[in-house]
């Protein structure tokens, strides 16, 4: 089991940050588009809703919440590995 814990510690990454990165970038791009580059024609097409702006803002809020979650409850790798080993040993 020793090699297993080594590999896990070396390879650990937090999926929550990747989700926040993707949605955050999407939100930022959409917000900028919605403020500056979405034409009246586009807005008329989308039933008079500036969907880029609103969806962008919502995604920014979502990304911020995920970052907050990651920050408040960080991954604790060593405990997890121990717990997994104890369990597989049983």
């Amino acid at each position: 089991m020793a090699h297993e814990s080594r590999s896990r510690r070396a390879g650990v990454f937090d999926i929550r940050l990747i989700i926040a990165l993707l949605i955050g970038v999407y939100g930022a791009v959409l917000t900028v588009l919605g403020i500056g580059f979405t034409t009246d024609e586009d807005i008329a097409k989308a039933a008079n809703v500036n969907i880029n702006l609103w969806a962008g803002l919502a995604m920014l809020v979502f990304a911020a919440l995920f970052v907050l979650w990651t920050w408040l409850r960080p991954l604790r790798v060593p405990e997890d590995v121990q717990a997994a080993q104890q369990e597989s040993a049983q």
Binding site: L22, I23, Y26, A46, A47, V49, I51, A55
Partner: peptide
């Protein structure tokens, strides 16, 4: 991990579409 990411992208794609559609 990709499935989890995909889940959020799918929701990010479909939720705004539904909202605009309902306005329409």
């Amino acid at each position: 991990y990709n499935e989890v990411l995909q889940f959020f992208v799918i929701v990010a794609a479909l939720l705004p579409l539904t909202i605009v559609g309902l306005y329409k």
